[in-house]
């Protein structure tokens, strides 16, 4: 598989009044085309900074991000982002249909509408196109955000804690929805989360990050196969072992941090 994303020695420092804040330091990893890679780390460890740097929303102070071998400079055109805060990332003044059409500017009108309808159907919202986001539940709003990202047909889909603000039941549904659509569309996904179970359940690989400044402590392959099931997979030995391993690594990572504080 060709490499889709390459992050090399990435570092970012925020200037601040009481000293500079080093959010990310010496991060390196690659994501192959068609892979779903989960990045897991403790809250506030710089995951969002990493994601914003890849999306070109901020320019990292050190290192490079390359998409299909081309260095990222500004916002790349073949990339879509799903943020955690669906209620703030959907445009409240547009209907659901128009929200999904929003990024499809270059296309003729009829094609735009068709693509949006198709994407909405794939997340099970074919009936909701004429509603406004405010009229939908949280889970449905996040489906719209996913549909919008899918309709854009990105080479790389970035997801920033996409299921952190929905209830547990909806979360399971949305996780399975993500697994299904990425298989159907063969999308490359980089998903950032603080939930260990979610990272193992969804990922082909799990990248474990240390606490701020973030750097990769482990790159674990997930041998759970393609077909996953919320109950059976989560009960399987491989899953339980992996989960323990990630938890151990994260605890280790935070221990190092605690030791530094003392």
């Amino acid at each position: 598989m060709p490499t889709m994303l390459e992050v090399a020695d990435l570092g970012h420092t925020y200037p601040g009044k009481d000293g500079a804040h080093n959010a990310v330091d010496g991060l390196s990893f690659t994501v192959d085309a068609g892979e779903l890679v989960c990045v897991v780390g403790p809250s506030g460890c710089g995951k969002s900074t990493l994601l914003r740097a890849i999306a070109g929303l901020i320019t990292p102070t050190r290192g490079t991000v390359s998409l299909r071998g081309t260095r990222v400079d500004g916002v790349p055109s073949e990339l879509a982002v799903v943020f955690q805060d669906y209620s703030r990332s959907l445009f409240p003044w547009l209907t659901v249909q128009r929200n999904v059409e929003f990024p499809l500017r270059g296309l003729p009108r009829s094609q735009r509408a068709a693509r949006a309808r198709e994407a909405l159907a794939s997340v099970g919202l074919d009936q909701a196109g004429r509603k406004h986001p405010g009229q939908l539940s949280g889970g449905m709003q996040q489906r719209v955000a996913i549909a919008r990202a899918l309709a854009y047909r990105p080479s790389l889909l970035l997801m920033d804690e996409p299921f952190a603000s929905v209830d547990a039941q909806t979360r399971f549904e949305l996780e399975d929805l993500l697994l299904r659509v990425r298989r159907e569309q063969d999308t490359t996904v980089l998903l950032v989360t603080h939930d260990i179970d979610e990272s193992v359940y969804l990922g082909d690989r799990v990248l474990v990050l240390t606490k701020s400044p973030a750097s990769v402590v482990a790159d674990l392959p997930v041998d759970l196969g393609d077909a996953r099931d919320q109950i059976k997979t989560r009960a399987s030995e491989t899953f339980v072992d992996l989960r323990a391993k990630v938890a151990e690594l994260l605890r280790g990572a935070s221990h190092i941090e605690d030791a530094k504080l003392i």
Binding site: G56, L57, A80, F83, R88, S89, F91, L94, P103, R105
Partner: peptide, 25 residues
């Protein structure tokens, strides 16, 4: 700011952000 970031992440330019995001909101 998340509205602006979302639009920018989808490759919306500065002027388009003004007319498509700032003006309607």
């Amino acid at each position: 700011p998340l509205h602006v970031e979302t639009a920018r992440a989808f490759g919306t330019g500065r002027l388009a952000v003004l007319t498509r995001v700032a003006l309607p909101s």
